[in-house]
Lab assay of single mutants.
Amino acid sequence: AQASVVANQLIPINTRLTLVMMRSEVVTPVGIPAEDIPALVSMQVNRAVPLGTTLMPDMVKGYA
């Protein structure tokens, strides 16, 4: 199954992502693919992302 990017902590709005904030997990619905984690580093989220939330393309500025 495809692993997705999941928030490893609460990520406040406009925060630049770092590796420690993200983990890969097989979840439904599928979000951003886990292999994109390196590309997500330093991108900003456009909303607060609670712990355990799957990151979707529309949550990350410049990803989609």
Rank of each mutant, 00 (worst) to 15 (best):
L51Y: 14
P12Y: 12
A64W: 03
E35H: 09
M59C: 04
V20P: 06
S24G: 07
P12H: 11
T54M: 03
G31V: 02
M43C: 04
M21S: 04
I11L: 11
D58Y: 13
L19G: 04
T15Y: 14
M21D: 04
S4F: 03
T15E: 09
E35I: 09
R16T: 15
Q2T: 14
R47M: 12
I32G: 02
A1M: 12
G31M: 02
R23T: 06
V30D: 08
I37W: 03
V5T: 07
T54N: 02
I11E: 01
S4K: 00
S24P: 13
S24Q: 14
L19H: 07
P57Y: 09
A48Q: 14
Q2W: 14
T54K: 04
D58I: 09
E25F: 09
R16F: 10
T15S: 11
V45E: 01
P57D: 07
I11Q: 01
N46E: 07
V26N: 09
G62K: 09
I11G: 00
I37G: 08
G52D: 11
A3E: 10
V5P: 00
V27D: 02
G31E: 02
V49E: 01
V41N: 05
V45F: 01
V27M: 09
A48C: 05
T53Q: 12
L17G: 01
A39L: 15
L40Q: 01
A7N: 01
P29W: 03
P57H: 08
N14Y: 15
S24D: 05
R16Y: 14
R16M: 14
V6R: 03
A1N: 08
V26D: 10
Q44W: 12
E25A: 11
S42N: 15
V60A: 01
V20C: 07
R47E: 07
V20Q: 15
G52L: 04
L40Y: 02
G62A: 08
V27P: 01
M56Q: 11
I37V: 09
T54E: 02
V6H: 02
P50Q: 10
A1C: 06
A7Y: 02
G62D: 12
K61V: 15
L51K: 13
E35G: 08
P38F: 10
V30A: 12
A48H: 13
E35S: 13
I11N: 00
L51D: 15
V6N: 00
A48F: 12
A39E: 06
T15I: 10
L55Y: 01
Q44T: 14
R23H: 05
D58V: 07
V26P: 12
L40W: 02
D36A: 13
T54G: 02
A64I: 12
Q44A: 15
A3G: 12
T28P: 01
P29L: 05
Q9S: 14
S24I: 09
V6A: 03
T54I: 09
L10K: 10
Q44N: 07
I32Q: 00
L51T: 11
M43Y: 11
Q9H: 08
M56D: 05
V30H: 11
Q2F: 10
N8Y: 04
V6M: 08
G52A: 08
P29A: 04
D36L: 10
G31C: 03
L19V: 05
S4D: 00
A48R: 07
V41H: 05
D58F: 10
V5M: 02
N46D: 10
V45G: 02
V30T: 09
V41T: 11
M56I: 11
N8S: 08
D58N: 10
L10H: 09
P12F: 08
T18S: 11
L51M: 15
G31F: 02
P57T: 06
Q2G: 15
L51E: 15
M56A: 06
V41S: 04
V27H: 04
G52H: 12
L55R: 01
K61P: 11
P50V: 12
G52K: 04
V30S: 09
L19E: 04
M59K: 01
